Deep mutational scan, measured.
Amino acid sequence: NQASVVANQLIPINTALTLAMMRSEVVTPVGIPAEDIPRLVSMQVNRAVPLGTTLMPDMVKGYA
């Protein structure tokens, strides 16, 4: 099963992502692949992401 990127904390809108904000977890539906975590660092979210939410490509500016 593919691990996805999950929010490790509440991430406010327009926040630049850091490693501490993300974790890898096997979830359904599948979100951004966990191997993309290094690429996500310093990218901004375009909405508030609650703790435990799977990051989807449309939630991260410049990812999709």
Results as ranks from 00 to 15, higher is better:
residue 21 M to F: 09
residue 24 S to P: 13
residue 50 P to R: 06
residue 17 L to E: 02
residue 40 L to K: 00
residue 39 R to N: 07
residue 33 P to H: 12
residue 32 I to A: 03
residue 32 I to T: 02
residue 43 M to P: 01
residue 11 I to M: 06
residue 43 M to A: 06
residue 62 G to S: 09
residue 29 P to N: 11
residue 35 E to F: 04
residue 30 V to A: 07
residue 54 T to C: 04
residue 13 I to N: 08
residue 17 L to V: 05
residue 19 L to I: 13
residue 44 Q to A: 12
residue 53 T to V: 10
residue 42 S to M: 10
residue 10 L to E: 13
residue 60 V to F: 07
residue 40 L to C: 04
residue 56 M to Q: 09
residue 19 L to N: 11
residue 3 A to H: 10
residue 41 V to K: 12
residue 46 N to V: 14
residue 43 M to K: 10
residue 35 E to N: 12
residue 60 V to L: 08
residue 47 R to H: 13
residue 26 V to C: 07
residue 36 D to H: 09
residue 6 V to S: 02
residue 6 V to G: 01
residue 23 R to T: 13
residue 37 I to F: 03
residue 3 A to G: 13
residue 4 S to N: 01
residue 56 M to K: 06
residue 63 Y to G: 03
residue 27 V to A: 10
residue 32 I to Y: 02
residue 41 V to Y: 06
residue 42 S to R: 04
residue 5 V to G: 02
residue 34 A to Y: 12
residue 31 G to R: 02
residue 43 M to Q: 10
residue 34 A to H: 13
residue 32 I to D: 00
residue 36 D to M: 07
residue 25 E to A: 05
residue 29 P to F: 05
residue 39 R to D: 03
residue 15 T to M: 09
residue 13 I to R: 06
residue 44 Q to L: 14
residue 45 V to P: 03
residue 27 V to S: 07
residue 47 R to L: 12
residue 29 P to K: 05
residue 23 R to W: 05
residue 12 P to Q: 15
residue 14 N to S: 05
residue 22 M to E: 02
residue 56 M to S: 13
residue 44 Q to D: 08
residue 40 L to A: 01
residue 47 R to T: 09
residue 33 P to F: 08
residue 49 V to D: 01
residue 50 P to I: 04
residue 12 P to I: 09
residue 55 L to V: 09
residue 23 R to H: 07
residue 7 A to C: 03
residue 30 V to N: 15
residue 59 M to D: 09
residue 28 T to R: 02
residue 25 E to F: 04
residue 26 V to L: 06
residue 13 I to S: 15
residue 9 Q to R: 10
residue 51 L to G: 14
residue 7 A to F: 01
residue 27 V to M: 08
residue 51 L to I: 11
residue 22 M to P: 00
residue 34 A to T: 08
residue 32 I to G: 01
residue 30 V to L: 10
residue 17 L to N: 01
residue 37 I to A: 10
residue 42 S to Y: 11
residue 40 L to M: 05
residue 15 T to F: 07
residue 21 M to K: 05
residue 45 V to D: 02
residue 36 D to C: 07
residue 32 I to S: 01
residue 35 E to S: 11
residue 25 E to R: 03
residue 41 V to L: 13
residue 39 R to A: 08
residue 2 Q to L: 12
residue 38 P to Y: 06
residue 42 S to H: 12
residue 32 I to Q: 00
residue 39 R to G: 14
residue 63 Y to A: 05
residue 60 V to C: 02
residue 38 P to L: 11
residue 18 T to K: 06
residue 62 G to T: 04
residue 17 L to A: 00
residue 18 T to S: 11
residue 10 L to H: 10
residue 33 P to N: 12
residue 54 T to A: 05
residue 14 N to F: 14
residue 44 Q to S: 12
residue 26 V to N: 10
residue 38 P to F: 05
residue 56 M to A: 11
residue 19 L to Y: 14
residue 41 V to G: 03
residue 44 Q to F: 09
residue 9 Q to T: 15
